[in-house]
Design a protein around this nucleic acid. Sequence first.
DNA 1: TTATTATTGATTTTCAGTATCAAATTTTTT
DNA 2: AAAAAATTTGATACTGAAAATCAATAATAA
Lengths: 159, 159
Amino acid sequence: MKIKKFIIKGKEIIMQSAREQFFQYLARKKLRFTSQRAIIFDVFWSVDGHVSPEELYRLTKEKDRSIGQATVYRTLKLLSDAGIAREVDFSDGVTRYEPYYGQKHHDHLICQECGKSVEVVDPRIEKLQEELAWQHGFTLSGHSMYLYGCCSQCSGKQA
Amino acid sequence: MKIKKFIIKGKEIIMQSAREQFFQYLARKKLRFTSQRAIIFDVFWSVDGHVSPEELYRLTKEKDRSIGQATVYRTLKLLSDAGIAREVDFSDGVTRYEPYYGQKHHDHLICQECGKSVEVVDPRIEKLQEELAWQHGFTLSGHSMYLYGCCSQCSGKQA
DNA sequence: TTATTATTGATTTTCAGTATCAAATTTTTT
DNA sequence: AAAAAATTTGATACTGAAAATCAATAATAA
Ligand SMILES: [Mn+2]
Ligand SMILES: [Mn+2]
Ligand SMILES: [Zn+2]
Ligand SMILES: [Zn+2]
């Protein structure tokens, strides 16, 4: 109970900082922190998952019917540029975004049966990726890695 | 010279086997090895790179004006299912296909300046990926990994 | 032959994402 | 304050990739 409270509080604090970072980013670029952007940010943050622009648009409209779809797309791009959100692509045809602020880098392990995704990271892999790029004379600026398979639950059902 | 000849001959042999495998696959599925499919296969194989369906459609029409775009899409799907081609996604908005028959698995290192791509593979990474999935109770069926960066040529130019 | 099945190319449709643009809002300058 | 400049917005139109539809063919089986 106490732990949960702590976690929740931690999340709020992070949310505040992320919001602040968004604000700072906009200021730096001489852009405005409008009410629409605030609403979209808040909804995006409250979802806290891997959400597509269209899903977010739907959710946002529940808070404010007047917000346009284009603004949602635009705001997600801004959040991306501000380093608060990240695009993820689970190869199922839709691009999603995930909150990325205050989160360590991670990759995804995806169950192709039920669609469940697990966030994973292996420092040894990350290191080897750097090495590998280096060997080919590349300066690595990023990577995307998705592991596809079948989770234990889905494996169980099948057998 | 001798080496080159050997390689070329090797490539032809591989092409023959790939064609054969395509044929076998179609037979197994009770599908037909039509002239259109043969042409599309041949052109695809002769390109030998990372080609988009639209590019392939254009190239194919040079051989046979009557071939339809839908057939190119369909045939690429078939080649994929037959394990002869593989989809690749360099995150530049277009899906490409590469010949995959007789080729070892590989991942891609991509220069974001000039678009050049290098095929790479590191068995240690592959092993760790398996491990990682295993630890989460997943049975791994595949993965996609793209390393993005800047190649030595492009780095040189900038500085 | 006749019936069945698979294939094709043209066309339409879908869908995500982008571009456009006039109206509205905010900021800056007089 | 008023006017001018800059930014933002939402509606709408548009794009391009990919899939679905469908009538016409072609190949195969009965
Ligand atoms: Mn994630
Ligand atoms: Mn390749
Ligand atoms: Zn599952
Ligand atoms: Zn380069």
